[in-house]
């Protein structure tokens, strides 16, 4: 079984995000980059399927040079090879362009299942997996929390408000992974060492023959407004504090 996992390198959830002065993007200085956690669920699921059914796991990522690190992380977890789509023209690419780059790369290799994270935690768009499935012309199941693959079929469980959907689809298909699908493994040290020597193909837009013209673009990025510091209501007695609170709510917060 040949499995492809699309991964994206994103800033660590705890990283301090500073928006560039001109609002064109974020300042990347001092940021710790990690694999998008939802993609990690995809990698883990792919490895599990491989361990059960045999085959290869290929990691595909669109991103600048530093994204190679994330591909290596997935290789350290146990994937066989990587495809690194690195083209300055793709920097800040929209979901459609990213998906078409991924699709072009994936079309060239055998793929029974393609995993994506349900969304990337940086832009929270959640579109790439779906567009990718369309471009590949294969079925998709999104936000999957449980997956079984047997007899050329995938049976996926997807949680919806108050219920669970069990969706069956033929292969090949695109699965977008949600939290709960699995617990991603910790890479072993031999895995980390071996990953350094595993093959990673680097491709650019020209090699893939895709158009880099964006369909959507970020107009401006702004930091959220600074939160005003909290206030501790003073006073000795409870009654006194309550009076203070009422006063503040009425006069300062103007909510009552």
């Amino acid at each position: 079984m040949n499995i492809v996992v699309c991964v994206k390198q994103v800033p660590d959830t705890e990283a301090l995000i500073k928006v560039k002065a001109d609002g064109s993007g974020i300042d990347e200085g001092g940021i710790k980059w990690v694999m998008n956690p939802y993609d990690e669920f995809g990698v883990e699921e792919a490895l599990k399927l491989k361990e059960k059914n045999g085959g290869d796991v290929t990691i595909v990522s669109v991103g600048p040079a530093r994204a190679l690190e994330t591909i290596r992380t997935a290789l350290a977890m146990g994937a066989e090879k990587g495809i690194h789509i690195n083209d300055p023209a793709l920097e800040g690419a929209d979901a459609y362009t990213t998906a078409s780059a991924l699709a072009a790369a994936i079309k060239e290799i055998p793929h029974d299942i393609v995993f994506c994270g349900m969304r990337a935690i940086d832009d929270d768009a959640g579109q790439v997996g779906s567009i990718l499935a369309e471009l590949l012309g294969i079925p998709q199941v999104t936000v999957v929390t449980k997956l079984e693959v047997a007899d050329g079929k995938a049976t996926a469980v997807k949680a919806i408000e108050g219920a669970q959907l069990v969706i069956e689809t033929s292969l090949p298909c695109v699965i977008t992974a949600a939290k709960g699908l699995n617990e991603p493994r910790y890479a072993s040290l031999p895995g980390i060492m071996k990953a350094k020597k595993k093959p990673v193909d680097v491709k650019d837009a020209a090699a893939l023959g895709i158009s880099v013209a964006a369909k959507a673009k970020i107009v401006k990025m702004m930091p959220p407004p600074e939160r005003a510091p909290g206030k501790i209501v003073g006073g000795e007695e409870a009654a006194e504090k309550a009076a203070q609170l009422v006063k503040l709510l009425r006069e300062e917060a103007k909510v009552i």
């Binding site: 660590d12 705890e14 710790k32 990690v34 617990e183 493994r185 910790y186 072993s188 040290l189 031999p190």
Partner: peptide, 22 residues
């Protein structure tokens, strides 16, 4: 257990990831 088999408690895995990232 940790380096060869990467087989250890999930809490500790999280701790190590945190130490790696931050």
């Amino acid at each position: 257990k940790v380096l060869m088999e990467a087989d250890f408690s999930p809490e500790l895995q999280l701790t190590y990831r945190n130490m790696e990232n931050n």
